[in-house]
Design a protein around this nucleic acid. Sequence first.
DNA 1: ATCCTCCCCTAC
DNA 2: TAAGGTAGGGGAGGAT
Length: 917
Amino acid sequence: MTDPRSRSNIHVGVKRNAPDLNPDSLHHDGSFGKYMQVKNRKLHEQFEEMAAAAGGGTGGVFAGVNVFVNGFTVPSQLELKQIMAENGGRFENYYCRAVTHIVCTNLPDSKVKHHAHERNPPPTVRPEWVVDSLAAGRLLPVTDYALWRLRDAPGQRTLAAFAAQPLSRSAPDRPAAPAHLPAWSPAGGKGQRDQSAIPDPLAARAAKDILKGPPRSSRDDPAFQATFWQASRLHFIGSWKARIEVLAAKLAGDAPAPKPPGRGGQRVIVHIDMDCFFASVAVLGNPELAGKPLAISHSASARGAGEVSSASYEARAFGVRAGMFMEAAKALCPGLVVMPYEFEQYEAISEQVYRLMLQRTSCVQPLSCDEAFMDVTGLGDPEALVSALRADIAAATGCTASAGVGPSLLLARLATRRAKPNGQLLVTAREADALLLGLAAGDLPGVGPATRERLDALGIKSVADARARTKAALQRELGGKTGASLWDYAHGRDTREVEPSGMRKTVGCEINYGVRFDGQADADRFVDELAVQLAERLAAAGARGRTLTLKLKRRKAGAPEPRKFLGHGICDNLSRSVTLPRFTDSAKELGREGRALLRAVGVPARDIRGVGLTMAKLDSDPASGAARPTNAKPAKLAAPPPSAYNPREPHPWNDWLAQKMAEERCADAAAAAAVAAAAEPSPGAAAATPVGRAALPSLSEIDAAVWAELPESVQRDLLLQRQLAHPRSPARAAVGLRRSPLRQAGGLAIGPGAGGSRAGTGSRAGVVDADAEGRAAAGTPILALPPASQLEPGVLDALPLSVRRELERAYGIGVGFRAMPFKSPPKRRRGGGGSIGDPGDDARERRLDELGMAAGEFGASLVPGDLEGAQLLLRRLAGARMRWPRFAARASAAAQRVQAAARRELGAPLALTGRLD
DNA sequence: ATCCTCCCCTAC
DNA sequence: TAAGGTAGGGGAGGAT
Ligand SMILES: Nc1ccn([C@H]2C[C@H](O)[C@@H](COP(=O)(O)OP(=O)(O)OP(=O)(O)O)O2)c(=O)n1
Ligand SMILES: [Mg+2]
Ligand SMILES: [Mg+2]
């Protein structure tokens, strides 16, 4: 890919970045290929500095020694590097011919084996060789430090850089494969093979694996950021659009343009998407993998917390999904074959696909590296066109694509989903309803996990359910735009058109993995390096900007070490921005401002788990020039740390989290929680009853009826318990179904800080003896209503319609329909209280009513600060579901509302899972 | 009214 | 061990 600027302004763009030493230079040449070379140079320079600083000349113990450290070692890779630097040796970050010794502890490492087959492989030694040699003051014989595994027969795990861990048990569905070998290994199920039998691409990839060391944090890897971006799939797909748009613009010229729609004004839209793209590419170089359950991931361990990027359809049959932790995937599918990423291939194949699409029509809207919309109106029989295009793609790339054709983007996209894999489907306007009415609400575009839960709580599970609501109702629940588009989509209405994506509005970069700082200086350096990267990307985009935003992830107080190694774990998200007086793309300036923002946010460096810099108000938008600069002296002080964070003021939250940590280690914790929920509904009991039961029942004791009513996601959690991760969408990592009283950025879930901030409806609910609607059996939990006169003005307006309706009925207030168009209901004034500047201060109040209702309806009061109360409430709701079928729906909805908020805040439902992130 | 900031959500 | 990015849409509430 060429520099994006070259399209319109070759000279400016290229000149601005003199020699390109940035490992992220893929943004310039579109290739990951040069990456290693550049990075290696960078690392070499750093090593030289280290050596110089150490004063180690060439005359030390290790003169003439050039080590490559492979895998985990003690001493660490960094320490070994330091030893080399101080004692005349050299250190290669990547394996190459110059290496004289491979240092390796991890026995089964295939990378080493691979090199045992070179003509003159360098000796492989255990790290003790370095230590002992240093102590002895001379180089000791390497034979005393050999790795026994090198004597193993060749041909095993040659590709197993990502599958080096033997499976603890053999895959039941693949009995032929030896248990200690990955099922897909050349040796697996096929007997031993000679190394030479391994296809070339595989060897190449195995060689590339050598370039990888153990993952290291920002603390101890001088090239951390570069390494991260090189290995990050999300960076790859996230930065793809910026690259592909250049190609789309370049190639658009010589293709037939769609004609204006004929009578009826109906367009013909194609949506096309590669089938399990990354996985398909893996099969290209490994045809024997066709038909096998396959996933792409950095991790192949059955205990791994690496994410599945793409899963073959065979793997999906087992439930394997993108975003899952490998642990979960392997649990679902023990025979899962795991292959590494091949970013260069994705890049190349994607470009081919786009070239082919752009031969068919000039109107292509790129959505991602494997997906696009095309407008083919008036370009002949669309099914024939699509069929030919798919054949082109298959022939040119060896990978299959599926496609949908329809009168709108919506229908084309939905058609693709139904057509997958390797199929195509045309949907007419007439057929739209049949298609739509068979879908879950969550299948509609724009409905992700958070919205799905909100809809679920409203009793809207299907598109049909959504259709039963008025547009105004959906708008009330979801907001004006979201509600409207959901309603439109549910009715098959979609007025969007295929258009080349517009001007870029922001350019940013962020890293939320491996971020660990010892002190402020570390954080400053990290921000500075991000600033360099941002400047690079701004230059590549040919843009400068005025508004710089720093994003931070801050470890939540009391949060345990994340499940994922070097992951960010449970965090608050904070951001702070500044609008500069002038446009800039200067790394120096961005660094300075970034560091200032860092200080302004005031998060202790040790608690930072993620950092991002984003530039907005770009000069490509004429309106950006008019923005007012941030006040020189911002009145706003640094946001004080939330109470949960203040060690002087220990918060129950911490204890609660600590308990959750303990539970996470208890295999049956999740199941136990569910049982606890089912065990003791006791709707009339006082809400304040402490939960405090330590001994928890086991999974087998879960009542079948309760089990059946648990949401599928919870069932899965319970079944898989702590081995399984949720399928993780990026959004899930961040917090927030919506601003909920159960959460706030400050880290308080249900916190004491909330108590004074507002006289919430949550505390007005009580327990009474009869249902307000008179429809419940004796003992039915009901809602104690405050006198209507005590309702704050506007409360009803702020409530979700479903709750509001019930309230209005109870009060005998007529239900009026709002006039269109949608307008946000007026908000109540705040009661005051919470710490000024606390970012969650306002959020805490929003929709408190909703949860208060949920609590009140079922005889609990959700008192701010009472986490146990929330758990009790959940138990009751579960009990209510079981005992009073007519309340099952409402109880379920209420429970999910609580859990939704809890999930946002904790990353896990209350008391229902041992997993915290 | 509209802008601005600080979020949250979604999609790949 | 493992690489949890990126950009846009959108909402809420305060400032102008
Ligand atoms: N959470 C995700 C989603 C996607 N991808 C990557 C891998 C996918 O192969 C590619 C394309 O995404 P798709 O949503 O199109 O998924 P697939 O192409 O893998 O499967 P499908 O056949 O459903 O399109 O993006 C990823 O790394 N992580
Ligand atoms: Mg795809
Ligand atoms: Mg796709």
